[in-house]
Design a protein around this nucleic acid. Structure first.
Lengths: 193, 193
DNA sequence: TTCACTTATTGAACTTGTTCAATGTTTTTA
DNA sequence: TAAAAACATTGAACAAGTTCAATAAGTGAA
């Protein structure tokens, strides 16, 4: 059950079996049904989660009622509202399961316990945050410089497995365009082939 | 000279005077003239830097020759290409001084020495990376949802001191719009008042 | 002080993307 | 399995933003 998690951690740092066991035991499994929420706006995010099954979207709703999807998370991805979780303040985000899903959750107290007692865990989260930050910088540059057509094509190429599990509405909300316009982009691409 | 740096570190973690001294001694001061580069594309970024004087821009040039500014850094800000620095791979970014500037630089070997010998430093950089990540998430959402007018107004409100030191070309490259369009936005705002 | 260079403004024509409304298709759910 | 709900497509009118070219204004550097 925690096999996926252990593999994921091993990609970033090296732990002894004992350390790995101790750390992974701090996570609680949770099942969450499609269309249900792991986090809603105004709540304080009480967890950092690792997805072992299913699919989530992490999104924001702006003052005009439009959704912007910050990221998706499938198996092997981590999910949290890092701002709400670390600073214990109300979240501005929603985390919703788009499929029947399973996650492993660690709460703040246990995460801090790990920081204290397993110094390598501090490194683990530093390295992971760095990696997600680099990826977001890359996405920021792409959003500043590329046209919607190109961002759509890039998305399909970069996340082919994810792409198949999403609706066009969701992809549009991630790309920052209307779903009608995405539909027109899809038609244009189809005609070109 | 390292006063600014010490204050900055103290905002994130608590170090004894000895620890603080040891850590800050790992930094080398460097003066860098206006229009000179701290990092150029294809170079490996050999430093993590803390700005004590002046102003930098960190930017990317896309395949069409357009610049996207990832961020600016003035006194009290950190600058690096985190991807290039941590993974020792060629950078895709430029870091240029927009004013005569001074920085304190730490290299990879000394930073790793600090991680080994001063465990709190690991926490320092985890916390700092988290904060910059949260800020970038916020910017990402704003770029997906807000119009250029609003992003310009937000920028002025959020960074009033920075705003005055930048040209409209630089602000436009940060907002992801043409400078001609920024000029029209400015006119529209001026007329409204 | 002058010359070169960079920055800022403006207008016109154009491209990209939005909005709204209508219609068709697929998926869920009772 | 029928009805409801969610998703996808399309067109027309519109808004946001770009491009290009012309001109003005500001800023060094010699």
């Amino acid at each position: 059950m925690t096999e996926l998690l252990k593999n994921n951690i091993s990609k970033h740092i090296t732990l002894s079996s004992k350390e790995m066991e101790d750390f992974c035991n701090l996570f609680q499994p949770k099942t969450i049904q499609k269309k249900h929420f792991l986090l809603s706006e105004h709540e304080v995010c009480k967890f950092e989660g690792f997805v072992t099954k299913g699919l989530f979207r992490v999104y924001h709703i702006d003052t005009n009622g439009f959704e912007q999807i910050l990221y998706f998370a499938i198996e092997n991805w981590w999910i949290t509202d890092i701002d709400s979780f670390t600073n214990e303040k109300p979240s501005q985000l929603f985390i919703e399961a788009l499929e029947d899903s399973e996650v492993l959750l660690i709460n703040k107290k246990d995460k801090e316990f790990a920081y204290e007692n397993l110094p390598k865990v501090e490194k683990l989260f530093r390295v992971m945050t760095q990696k997600t930050h680099v990826a977001l910088q890359r996405r920021m540059i792409d959003n500043l410089s590329k046209t919607a057509d190109q961002r759509y094509i890039d998305f399909i190429e970069k996340y082919p497995q994810l792409f198949q599990r999403l609706t066009n509405l969701q992809i549009a909300a991630y790309l920052g365009i209307s779903h009608e316009f995405l539909s027109k982009i899809r038609k244009k691409i189809a005609n070109k082939k």
